[in-house]
Computed example of a mutant assay.
Amino acid sequence: MHINHLIDPAFAPASAAVRAGDIPGAVLGVVTAAGERAVRAEGSAQIEPDHVGVTRETWFDLASLTKVIFTTTRILHYVEQGRIALDDPLTKVIPDLRQYDMNAAERRLTFRQCLAHDTHLPAVEPLYTYGQDPQTLRAFVLQRVWKPGPPVYSDINFILLGIAIERLSGLPVIDQDLAEGLTFRPDALQCAATERCTWRGRVIRGEVHDENAFALGGAAGHAGLFGTIGGVLDFARGLLDGSLLAAASIDAIRSRQTATRSVGWECRHAGWHGGDICSDSTIGHTGFTGTGLWLDFDRGIAWSLLTNRVHPTRHRDSGILALRRATGERVSAQFNPAH
């Protein structure tokens, strides 16, 4: 099926969710390895305090898509340059990690383990409640005695990786160079709004929704990236056609490190957000604000659903899991690269 013909049926669940008031707005984009693409948009970028419509040019807070689009990719570029190896400990770049205890478990953590969320670190910590000085909070992350636990999906893993990127580049995450359609410093008037934040006392628009990323200076290794659907699809195509990363890096993001995770990405598994019809070679990632990106390497297709489902509050059931699965299954069921 031609890509322009599959986008409308694939967008139908998102359109219904907007009309039902489950989510304010949505943009769906599909791209092939050959560069063919289609996009649909509907609903509101903001519903309070004023109404703003969503378009394909709307910038979304990509939330944890930062982990794969920026952090994972940038770490793999450093691996390709020979500056680090995936199995190097973080201390190769961050020698002061847990510097007061040379036997600390954190000093043995590798880039691969953090990328695959295969560490003892917790899922999240309310760092922002300890203060808002970015450098002090970075020091706190590096010196904290983290309580050990079973491996979980952890923002702390990627905050550490973001600090490593800052050390390697000499620049804060928020000042890193990015491709067109991606930014850490968006124009607020072009952005979809996220939450009415009780901590900041305002509707968040054009600044990162994640409180820890905000307190760490506006962007960190786990969150802070903004993008348009075009920017996200450009990134996805670069992975599909092999132009963005070397073959060994593509193999790393496609190869399972744990039952459900590769280097940086989530791998297809039963019940996941990408749906059950995609091929086993499919990887994906989601963002808390309502974003998501999936790449099916066997079919040579990627799709991204961008929503602002936390606007004006996260404390409601937006049905985002069912929406993502329905969207992915419609894309996968209709697209046959032979046609």
Rank of each mutant, 00 (worst) to 15 (best):
I3V: 14
N4T: 12
H5G: 14
H5W: 02
H5D: 15
L6E: 15
L6G: 14
I7M: 14
I7V: 15
F11P: 12
P13K: 14
P13N: 12
P13A: 01
P13R: 12
A14M: 06
S15L: 08
S15G: 09
S15F: 02
A16P: 11
A16Y: 00
A17V: 07
V18A: 09
R19Y: 09
A20R: 12
A20I: 06
A20V: 05
G21E: 09
D22K: 14
D22G: 03
I23Q: 10
G25N: 09
G25H: 05
G25K: 14
A26L: 00
A26H: 06
V27S: 07
V27H: 01
L28D: 04
G29F: 11
G29R: 00
V30Y: 06
V31A: 10
T32H: 01
T32P: 03
A33I: 07
A33G: 08
G35S: 00
E36G: 04
E36F: 03
E36R: 02
R37W: 02
R37A: 12
R37Q: 14
A38D: 10
A38E: 14
V39E: 09
R40Q: 07
A41S: 13
E42H: 04
G43N: 02
S44M: 10
S44D: 10
S44T: 07
A45C: 04
A45W: 04
A45M: 06
Q46G: 12
I47A: 09
I47S: 05
P49K: 13
D50A: 12
D50W: 11
H51D: 03
V52I: 04
V52Y: 02
V52S: 06
G53L: 09
G53P: 03
V54T: 13
V54W: 05
V54C: 11
T55I: 12
E57Y: 07
E57V: 11
E57L: 13
E57C: 02
E57K: 14
T58A: 03
T58H: 11
W59V: 14
W59G: 00
F60N: 13
F60Q: 12
F60K: 09
D61H: 00
D61Q: 00
D61Y: 07
L62C: 07
A63R: 10
A63K: 11
A63T: 07
A63W: 10
L65A: 07
L65I: 08
L65P: 10
T66D: 02
K67E: 07
K67N: 11
K67W: 15
V68F: 13
V68R: 01
V68H: 02
V68Q: 02
I69L: 13
I69H: 06
I69P: 04
I69N: 13
I69C: 05
